[in-house]
Design a protein around this nucleic acid. Structure first.
Length: 259
DNA sequence: ATGTCGTACCGAGTACGA
């Protein structure tokens, strides 16, 4: 089963790019971030006519996450537990009912800039809530994954120019420590489990010719529970998507699971 | 040396978020 994550930076802006990628990449499940759409305006027909079930958790203008799945979905939940006041649409969960049921968590972690400040505080608090949710899910000892735009550059080798990110919320020590705490719970970062090379990126800014200079960062990640990591067969970044017409600033990343 | 894009609001250009 192929499960992909893709920060599309606006579903309306990607109305041609996204179906073309789906037709080529043929993921069974796609976790989307930054749909920038309310649920009522999400163009679900485009995906339904390709055989996908569609579950969204949207809001006006910003954020918003969605799950597309060719397999049945059960127990869909919206929002990250732990703060009833949080109105930002950044998290959705569902169980994909394949041969082996997999709980999938699609997430768009807060950017957190500028640091220090309230936005950074919100990011770190959000990461604590994510950790709590991971602890909860781990107790079931079943396959699950948390995938999406983490807005965290885990280590210096995950950036072309780590020095320019030093004071940025994506690379600050507290952000990296919070990400590491997730790994230390026993989650496997799929890409790094299979690939130790530096210079492997998932995001290139639209500005300053970042793509042409390969001036990127690796911030989109798959974290797998132990039972899910046992199923891991392959993990890849669809880098070439960034060079096509009307690209998002992120590219898809996907795992193939023996499930 | 310079350099973006998407969305809202609302009808053009500006503000915001990334």
């Amino acid at each position: 089963m192929k499960i992909a994550s893709f920060n599309i930076n606006g579903v309306k802006a990607r109305i041609e790019t996204l179906p073309r990628w789906l037709d080529e990449a043929q993921p069974d499940v796609a976790l989307l971030q930054e749909i920038k759409s309310v649920d009522e305006n999400f163009p679900r027909e485009i995906f339904e006519e390709r055989g996908y079930r569609v579950e969204t958790h949207g809001q006006k203008s910003f954020n918003g996450v969605a799950i597309l799945s060719k397999l049945p979905l059960e127990d869909v939940t919206r929002g990250l537990p732990g703060d009833d006041e949080d109105e930002q649409a950044r998290y959705i969960e569902a169980t994909v009912m394949g041969e082996v049921p997999i709980r999938v968590c699609g997430l768009y972690l807060p950017n957190g800039n500028p640091t220090p400040g309230p936005k950074y505080d919100y990011k770190l608090a959000w990461m604590k809530r994510l950790e709590s949710r991971a602890v909860e899910l781990l107790s079931a000892e079943e396959p699950f994954l948390m995938a999406g735009d983490y807005n965290v550059i885990p280590q210096d080798e995950d950036a072309k120019r780590p020095e320019v990110w030093q004071e940025d919320a994506l690379a600050r020590p507290e952000s990296r420590a919070a990400f590491r705490r997730l790994l230390n719970l026993g989650l496997t970062e799929a890409f790094r489990a299979r690939n130790s090379a530096s210079g492997q990126f998932t995001f290139w800014d639209y500005q300053a010719g970042a793509w042409n200079k390969d001036d990127g960062i690796r911030i989109d990640h798959f974290l797998l529970s132990p039972q899910c990591a046992d199923l891991l067969q392959d993990v890849q970044i669809d880098k070439e998507e960034r060079g096509r017409s009307k690209p998002s600033d992120h590219v898809p990343i996907w795992v193939d699971l023996a499930a």
